[in-house]
Computed example of a mutant assay.
Amino acid sequence: MGIKIHGIPHGATLRVLAAANEKELQYQLVYVDLPSGAHKQPSFLSLNPFGQIPAFEDGDLTLFESRAITKYIAHTYEEKGTPLTYKTRKQMADQAIWMEVEAHQFDPVVSKLARELVYNFYFNKPTDEAIVEENKSKLAKILDVYEARLSKSKYLAGDLFTLADLHHLPGLQSLMGTQISKLFEERPYVCQWCKDILARPAWEKALALQKQI
């Protein structure tokens, strides 16, 4: 049956595509037609009962939630491609911390900024400047913490690229063409980290799929 990634090459689905590419896996991207409501139909709900993308199949195993999928990929295909995880106790702990930071500190703020500055613009909706300013301030404080961390190691969990870095990619990509990019550029270690991970071939391969739909 092979690996199937159900979604579109945007947002959280990109996180899964990047992980699969880092592991050099063969997979099929199954396009989910969101405008038609395909993600709310019984066939898709059998894969993700919340009716959200992405969903993932590996043979007879089904998963949803992008971060859970990337963890599965990293551990199941441990010997293939980029390691993506650490094995030593200290570095495993550091990786776990920064994965939680991404999910609970970084992503909620970035998602609000992306909605106001990217998606509202795309759908011709007004930008709520108050929301932008509030979350811009929050992100600046978060990035100060990142700058301090990245002054000590090349990547968030150490000197190897891991899921802790990979999970940031969709959020970073969404903001790079907006006014918020200045917050990243003003912090030299954060800036270098962004340039590094956004230029990874696995990420560029995931983004290239956008041209096929």
Rank of each mutant, 00 (worst) to 15 (best):
L117F: 01
I5A: 00
S153W: 04
K138D: 01
T62N: 13
E24V: 04
S174K: 08
I197Q: 03
Y77A: 12
T127D: 08
I73D: 13
I131F: 00
K195L: 05
I180G: 01
V190W: 01
L34N: 11
Q210T: 14
E79D: 13
T88E: 13
I213D: 01
G2R: 03
D128M: 01
T162V: 09
L163Y: 13
G51Y: 01
H168S: 09
K211A: 10
R15G: 11
V16S: 07
R187L: 08
G51T: 07
G51S: 06
Q212T: 14
S151T: 08
N120D: 06
G158Y: 01
L160A: 13
F161G: 10
V30S: 03
T127C: 05
I3F: 03
A18F: 04
D165W: 07
T13V: 14
L17N: 05
D159Y: 05
E78D: 06
P42Y: 08
N124M: 05
S111I: 04
D165Q: 04
P170R: 05
L84E: 07
P9L: 14
L172I: 14
G11L: 15
L150G: 03
A20I: 05
Y122Q: 15
T127V: 15
E185F: 02
F161M: 10
Q212R: 02
A148M: 10
I131V: 14
Q52L: 15
Y155I: 06
D107T: 07
